[in-house]
């Protein structure tokens, strides 16, 4: 949280003129065509756009899951563009958290083991207080010993969120986190994300196509055809819908 009197806002992650090209020659696809964006620490940003706009690709590049063809990406102020696979893997382990739409958890591990997995991979000690607090606030304390097949969709996503937060990452990336959930469960999840950002200062970048989900964010970044097409601050659902309609045409 920025201290009083200072307007210095650190950037949790940023992209500068990022270009991502798949394939080569005639079949080359420019998924990202020079995207620049900055995500302030403690912000909750939603990236929206029609299919093929490159929103997932942008997230992958920001998170170190994929490497940009041109341009630069930073996480926590550090340049990650030139890093090799080992370094990127370590980055994902220690400084970044993930929530996907589905298939977030390893079916052979219990909920608790899934949550603690990134710590185990990093060889770090478990902060039991943090763990209990997370589990409590997400309401999954009594489901910790169960396997994913024994959990409902909403519970699985909450376990995934707990896992993404347990390492205290600089950014949490969520790719359509509520896509497979019913509206009530989805909205309770989004509320949690929002409060996590507002009260705990967790930076969250969420990719979504759902305007209702986008309305939970502080800022909505719009992408179309691999380029930034617009930005909305503190949008309502209607604002988002209006802009999307123009993008689609």
């Amino acid at each position: 949280m920025p201290s009083s009197g200072q307007v210095m806002v650190r950037s949790a992650c940023s992209a500068t003129d990022v270009v991502k090209i798949y394939g080569s020659g005639d079949t080359a696809v420019r998924a990202l065509d020079g995207v620049s964006a900055e995500f302030a620490a403690g912000s909750f940003t939603a990236i929206m756009g029609p299919s093929g706009s490159g929103k997932s690709t942008l997230m992958h590049c920001l998170a170190g899951l994929d490497t940009a063809t041109h341009g630069s990406v930073t996480v926590g102020g550090d340049e990650i563009t030139g890093l090799d696979d080992r370094a990127l893997t370590n980055l994902r382990r220690d400084r970044v958290g993930f929530v996907f739409q589905s298939f977030n958890l390893l079916p052979t591990l219990t909920a608790e083991q899934n949550i603690l997995l990134p710590l185990e991979l990093a060889g770090r000690r478990v902060d039991r207080e943090l763990f209990d607090a997370l589990a409590g606030s997400l309401g999954i304390t009594d489901r910790l010993r169960h396997r994913p097949s024994e959990l409902s969709g909403g519970q699985q996503q909450r376990v995934a969120i707990a896992r993404s937060l347990i390492t205290g990452p600089q950014v949490v990336f969520a790719d359509e986190p509520t896509g497979a959930l019913d509206s009530r469960t989805g909205q309770s999840l989004l509320s949690y994300l929002r409060s996590s950002s507002r009260e705990s200062g967790q930076t969250i970048v969420m990719v979504t196509h759902d305007p209702i989900a986008a309305s939970y964010a502080d800022r909505v970044l719009l992408l179309a055809d691999g380029r930034v097409a617009g930005e909305l601050v503190e949008p309502s659902t209607d604002d988002v819908l209006a802009v999307i309609r123009t993008l689609g045409s």
């Binding site: 893997t89 994902r92 993930f98 298939f103 977030n104 990134p118 991979l121």
Partner: peptide, 16 residues
């Protein structure tokens, strides 16, 4: 495949 990808995303090295 997806499981392995998830593990890689979460920070498992290739060697591991």
């Amino acid at each position: 495949t997806r499981e392995s990808a998830l593990l890689r995303a979460l920070g498992l090295h290739r060697r591991q």
